[in-house]
């Protein structure tokens, strides 16, 4: 079964028509990568699915349950989380409070112990204001918040942007653990192709507001679509997949 189904999704910012009919199915319990050049509409697509775009048309469903017309907070409580690029944490709340917000907001939160068992690094920082942590640590707090929400679907926008290399690997590890051990479906927007290729089971390409193809990491680098759409060649992609 598909976790997230998107049909003929259109989205506008003011008068700019950015999403021009996106059709996409994100399979359950897997990590799906969304790739595209800058300005292709990747972030806009995630926002549209979350209901955080001024004008949206089309259909979005989570495990067959329609999300259309519902505000972002209702979508989040229905089981979909969104880690945006702009705001990772509530900077003036402590790490513990950041997690508590999620626990208080959703109907069936995951217990703190379970979250700390997977993301142990933040245990030492629970009382510190989240805004004082490094970029990578903030990203772990964001992951912990999403994990606390106990969502079935997690959308991530550039989780490794501005993060140190060893932290990139750690984030990849957590993403894999969430998907494969806890059954969370992930839609990942990631410029870091190394990470995308190592964690994603499927990739799809977004160009000018439409899905223009996709496949497994191996097939997209073999058939040249990766190079055609992104203008890059993935060295050793087959090995990574």
């Amino acid at each position: 079964m598909d976790a997230l189904t998107i049909e003929k999704l259109h989205g506008w910012y003011g008068k700019s028509h950015i999403l021009q009919g996106v059709d996409l199915a994100v399979p359950a319990g897997q990590v799906t990568g969304l790739l595209g050049r800058n300005g292709a509409g990747k972030t806009t697509l995630l926002k549209a699915v979350m209901g955080q775009l001024p004008r949206i048309e089309g259909k979005v469903a989570l495990y067959g349950q329609s999300l259309d017309g519902r505000p972002a907070d209702a979508r989040a409580r229905a089981g979909i989380a969104y880690m945006s690029q702009e705001h990772r944490v509530f900077p003036e709340l402590s790490v513990a409070e950041n997690i508590k917000v999620a626990a208080a907001a959703v109907p069936d939160p995951r217990p703190l112990d379970e979250v700390l068992a997977l993301i142990g690094e933040i245990r030492d920082h629970l009382r510190r204001p989240a805004g004082r942590l490094s970029g990578g640590q903030q990203q772990l707090v964001a992951l912990a918040r999403c994990m606390t929400m106990n969502v079935r679907m997690l959308m991530m926008d550039e989780p490794t942007e501005g993060v140190m290399p060893q932290m990139v690997d750690r984030i990849g590890e957590i993403i894999r653990a969430l998907a494969h051990e806890r059954g969370v479906s992930v839609l990942l927007v990631e410029q870091n192709l190394g990470l995308s290729f190592s964690v994603c089971t499927d990739l799809c390409f977004l160009e000018k507001g439409r899905i223009v193809g996709g496949g497994t990491p191996a097939t997209v680098s073999a058939d040249g679509s990766l190079e055609r759409i992104l203008g890059v060649r993935m060295r050793g992609a087959k090995n990574a997949a």
């Binding site: 955080q52 907070d73 989040a76 989380a81 702009e86 944490v89 509530f90 917000v101 999620a102 907001a105």
Partner: peptide, 11 residues
Amino acid sequence: QARALAAATGV
């Protein structure tokens, strides 16, 4: 502190 983030968290 972060309106959009709060909404996406289910607040």
